[in-house]
Write a protein that binds this DNA or RNA. Structure first.
Length: 642
RNA sequence: GCCCACGUAGCUCAGAUGGUAGAGCGCAUCCUUGGUAAGGAUGAGGUCACCGGUUCAAUUCCGGUCGUGGGCUCCA
């Protein structure tokens, strides 16, 4: 048999007999130590099993278990082992659906009449470990689709049959491990010995193929890592995320609450949360004014006819709350602010000379969200958009987009978000507006992004029907991405509302309209802020900047004096003058995540000073009340960046 | 909206094969006056989410409603 030349990328080729497996070839190319970490290999763009037969000269990229691609293979295989275990334990009552690897883990969907319980999880994990420990090979076979269909039909595996049918290929690949055989594209681990560190995390309902008309399956989520240490690290990170959960912190720090009597998805801001929100709103307004925006206020309801004109009733009606009759005229609660801003636009005859018009509003809107979608502050039914609409001439579009991006990133950065994923969404299949307009607008968005030096991805066809858009996702402290900002060009509403301006040529033209929100909604943004900072907000927008605590009752009067002076100086101050030990007061202030603790004993009372304790436990030297006030004001200035 | 789980004091949670309930924290009062993460005592506080059914008796069992959570789905 003749030899073929196989090499790893950038390495010397080795001669191996034709029809060797990848594994065999790699054994000539890699050290023993490296070989133990290889779980699959890349040939060109596709990832293949180590058992794949090589028939021609090939360049291989080995995939190590401790790389993202390696983890992917590991998790995918672990999902199969889980299905194997479930099948072993619960028999043929269980039908298997699909089990891919996903970000941070894997899942497998099952049809089973009984719900999976936490005790089941333990059993499944134990059985998985048994299977894994047997060091079983994953064996790939290719068979004709018709044979596979017959086999799965015999087992009653209707989902597999459906999958094969929709694949529309002549042959499919199967993988078997021990006694369990599954339809799968692969690739898989060479054997189960790599499966050492895994955990089942939760079970949830999921529709077959994500369609609510289909069967509801039970989806078991789990995760797997190449060693126990990595698994532990991940589980700890989950714990950490739990501690940062804005719903938990919102309660602990008394920021916001909801009330069954009032309704789900409707937020009540407690005094501290309201303070936090006010600070954010004030900052937002100040920055907008500085950036040449004007502020609007508009109502919460409007005649239903407005929503017909805008098209919201047709396109968005199912998310709008039903109307009310006022003097026999139908009114509806607003799901968006745009028609109102158009109302302001139409209050006057507009000239190209006054463009661009930049109008912003913290506009509270109400949208029907399905009950199951509601989530803390992140998904609610009543929320306040940090909205703005810009009306301009086509030739101003690119500059306006650039200015928006600049303000957008400036504000996000000031809140501590400097990492973004940016997406440019282009024309979808169904759209309004002319092709030329779409092209010009898409181009303007692109040019503005490039001019700003921002990397972005193009989401082809993901634009909304009325225009192209830019979406910005911010990354928080834990690296999680949150969609907040959106910048959208709109060809639809100017047309529907017959908006015009008088151009230099003394004829009427249609303005370009841009919608944009930077934080998205205040509720959502504050939720993200809470998680990002784990509730320990920077001084400039923390609801409480300092808490005064006396050591004994003897300094209560002085404590009150300090409190009043600092409040008058505009600081956000609390006092804890209770008859409690200092340790106790410090503990409480620490848990409340207050930046400065002002400690007052006889010394301070005598000298007219305060001793400042920081959140990190360090102390500043005693300073006068005025000095402290000045220090805080200075830090706030710096933090606001204005 | 759908599937599953859950709903007991302000908070975090325990509890009984069906006989109207407990802890810690917090709160109130008193003692204590203590310099950098919990001093002590006493006490108040619950229609066991809501409505209905079964039962001599329901917080406990059953049904429904509402809410919360994990997902699915949705987010022109």
């Amino acid at each position: 048999m003749s030899d073929i030349a196989v090499s790893v990328q950038d390495g010397e080729p080795a001669a191996v007999p034709a029809n060797s497996t990848v594994q065999e070839a790699l054994s000539k190319l890699l050290s023993n130590k490296q070989r133990k970490r290889v779980v699959a290999a890349k040939v060109g763009d596709s990832i293949v099993d180590l058992t794949t037969i090589l028939t021609e000269d090939t360049v291989l990229s080995p995939i190590m278990i401790d790389t993202p691609e390696g983890l992917d293979v590991l998790r995918h295989s672990t999902a199969h082992i889980m299905a194997h275990a479930v099948r072993d334990l619960f028999g043929a009552d269980v039908k298997v659906a699909i089990g891919p690897s996903i970000e941070n883990g894997f899942y497998y969907d099952f049809l089973r009449s009984e719900p999976f319980t936490p005790e089941d999880f333990e059993k499944i994990e134990a059985r998985m470990a048994e299977i894994a420990n047997q060091n079983l090979p994953f064996i790939r076979t290719e068979i004709a689709s018709s044979d596979a269909t017959r086999a799965f039909e015999a087992e009653g595996e209707k989902y597999k049959v459906e999958l094969i049918r929709d694949l529309q290929t002549d042959a499919v690949s199967l993988y078997s491990v021990g006694g369990f055989q599954d339809l799968c594209r692969g690739p898989h681990l060479p054997n189960t010995s790599f499966i050492k560190a895994f955990k089942l995390l939760r079970v949830a309902g999921a529709y077959w193929r994500g369609d609510e008309k289909n069967d509801v399956l039970q989806r078991i989520y789990g995760t797997a890592f190449f060693d126990a240490k990595e698994l532990k690290k991940y589980l700890n990170a989950l714990e950490e995320a739990k501690k940062r959960d804005h719903r938990r912190l919102g309660k602990e720090l008394q920021l916001f609450t909801t009330d069954d009597q009032i309704g789900p998805g409707l937020i009540l801001w407690q005094p501290k949360g309201a303070q936090l929100r006010r600070l954010i709103e004030d900052y937002w307004k100040d920055e907008h004014y500085r950036h040449d925006y004007d502020l609007l206020y508009t109502p919460h309801i409007a005649r239903q006819d407005l929503w017909k004109t805008s098209g919201h009733l047709d396109f968005y009606g199912e998310n709008m709350y039903s109307g009310m009759d006022i003097d026999e005229v139908r009114y509806q609660l607003k799901p968006m602010n745009c028609p109102f801003h158009i109302g302001v636009y139409k209050s006057d005859k507009r000239s190209y000379r006054e463009f661009p018009l930049r109008w912003c509003e913290l506009g509270t809107v109400y949208r029907y969200e399905r009950a199951g979608a509601l989530h803390g502050l992140l998904r609610v039914r009543g929320f306040t958009q940090d909205d703005a609409h810009i009306f301009c001439r086509p030739d101003q579009l690119e500059d306006e987009i650039y200015n928006i991006l600049e303000l957008n990133l400036h504000i996000l950065k000031n809140f501590g978000f400097a990492d973004y994923d940016i997406y440019l969404s282009t024309r979808p299949e169904k759209y309004v507006g002319s092709d030329e307009n779409w092209e010009a607008a898409t181009n303007a968005l692109k040019l503005a992004l490039e001019k700003k030096g921002l990397g972005f991805e193009i989401d082809p066809g993901e634009g909304v029907f009325y225009g192209p858009k830019i979406d910005i996702k911010i990354k928080d402290q834990l690296g999680r991405a949150w969609q907040c900002s959106t910048i959208q060009v709109d060809f639809n509403l100017p047309e529907r509302f017959k908006m015009t301006y008088v151009g230099a040529d003394n004829t009427e033209h249609q303005p370009i309209m841009i919608h944009r929100a930077l934080m998205g909604s205040l509720e959502r943004f504050i939720g993200v802020l809470i998680e990002h900072y784990a509730g320990a907000f920077p001084l400039w927008f923390t609801p409480i900047q300092a808490r005064i605590m006396n050591i004994t009752d003897d300094q209560a009067d002085y404590g009150l004096e300090v409190y009043e002076k600092l409040r008058k100086a505009g600081l956000r101050i609390e006092k804890d003058l209770r008859n409690e030990k200092l340790n106790y007061k410090i503990r409480e202030a620490q848990l409340a995540k207050i930046p400065y603790m002002l400690i007052i004993g006889d010394k301070e009372k005598e000298d007219g000073t305060v001793t400042v304790r920081l959140r990190d436990g360090k102390n500043l030297p005693p300073m006068s009340i005025a000095e402290f006030a000045a220090k805080v004001q200075e830090e706030v200035q710096a933090g606001r960046g204005i």
